[in-house]
Design a protein around this nucleic acid. Structure first.
Length: 272
DNA sequence: AACAGCCGCAACCGCCGTATA
DNA sequence: CTATACGGCGGTTGCGGCTGT
């Protein structure tokens, strides 16, 4: 009962997007709106899989996308939300305007996980054991083999591209990215920067907080971000939406801050 | 300068839930 | 009820730049 593949891969381009493709996709969506991803590539004149188009649009071309420069505030929020939601990247991304799940996932895996590790913290939903070390990173693979592999890949790509007649001018190095975003002014203020956490400084006044996890276990963060409870730490957040449907305009009072947070958390658990 | 290994991140893959015929 | 289409999500891969030797 397997599903048919989203598209036949034959004759479709893969890999980095060219400017031309980006323009085609953007123009098409601006005119016709999102959706119908499967038929979109054909209509838009793209030799791409619909999924690929969707991904490109969602993660890059969509207006309002911020990229890079994840600041300490956002980092802090990501960690907090992850402690609450686990690897639900789309949910987490939903709390960070302009950020995509992919970006947050990448950031978590490449930066935060490392920090957590160094700090001796075992996050919840810690990525499962990597599958067989297919990855070149995982093994000290034979360098020659590696080179060969790379060359082979390149060759294959080149062959593919030759089939794709013209359009080659801008291939494939012409990955075009939107300009680096400017960091949003910090919406979230905080007293304890994540960095200070990881640096091991315990010079804050907060007690060690424990996050409750979705599976009901209290765990993972024995670190001083803030506490869900009495010993309130951390500054108030001025305004942010927290969970779907909840407009969290947090008051400046820290204790009420935490109260609201607790309420939201409870409601969220119930929703689950 | 050349090479090897590391790292970040864009893109892909496969699965799942929902909608629809 | 079943099969299929579709959108969405999380995990994983691998390209290409960077850094160290």
């Amino acid at each position: 009962m397997g599903r048919s593949p989203c598209c036949s891969k034959v004759g479709l381009r893969r890999g980095p997007w060219s400017t031309k493709e980006d323009t085609l996709l953007t123009n098409y969506i601006e005119q016709h709106g999102e959706g119908q991803w499967r038929s979109l590539p054909k209509k838009a004149g793209l030799l791409r899989c619909g999924k690929s188009c969707r991904l490109r649009w969602m993660n890059y071309l969509r207006p309002g996308i911020k990229r890079g420069n994840i600041g300490p505030d956002e980092e802090d929020l990501i960690i907090r939300l992850h402690s609450l939601l686990g690897n639900r990247w789309s949910l987490i991304a939903g709390r960070l305007p302009g950020r995509t799940d992919n970006e947050i996932k990448n950031y978590w895996n490449t930066h935060l996980l490392k920090k957590l590790k160094t700090a001796g913290i075992q996050p919840k939903d810690y990525p499962k054991q990597q599958k067989e070390p297919k990855s070149k990173k995982s093994t000290v693979s034979e360098p020659n083999a590696k080179q060969k592999k790379k060359k082979q890949k390149k060759k294959i790509n080149q062959e593919q591209e030759q089939v794709q007649v013209q359009e080659q001018e801008e291939l494939p190095k012409t990955t075009v990215y939107l300009p680096k975003p400017i960091r949003v002014s910090s919406v979230f203020s905080r007293s304890n920067s994540v960095d200070s956490l990881f640096s091991g400084s315990s010079s804050n006044d907060c007690d060690v907080g424990k996050y409750a996890t979705l599976d009901g276990t209290a765990s993972y963060l024995d670190w001083p971000l803030f506490e869900l409870g009495d010993g309130v730490c951390g500054e108030s957040h001025q305004e942010f939406e927290f969970l779907d449907g909840f407009d969290m305009s947090l008051p400046h009072s820290e204790s009420s801050n935490m109260l609201v947070l607790e309420q939201v958390y409870d409601e969220y658990l119930q929703l689950l």
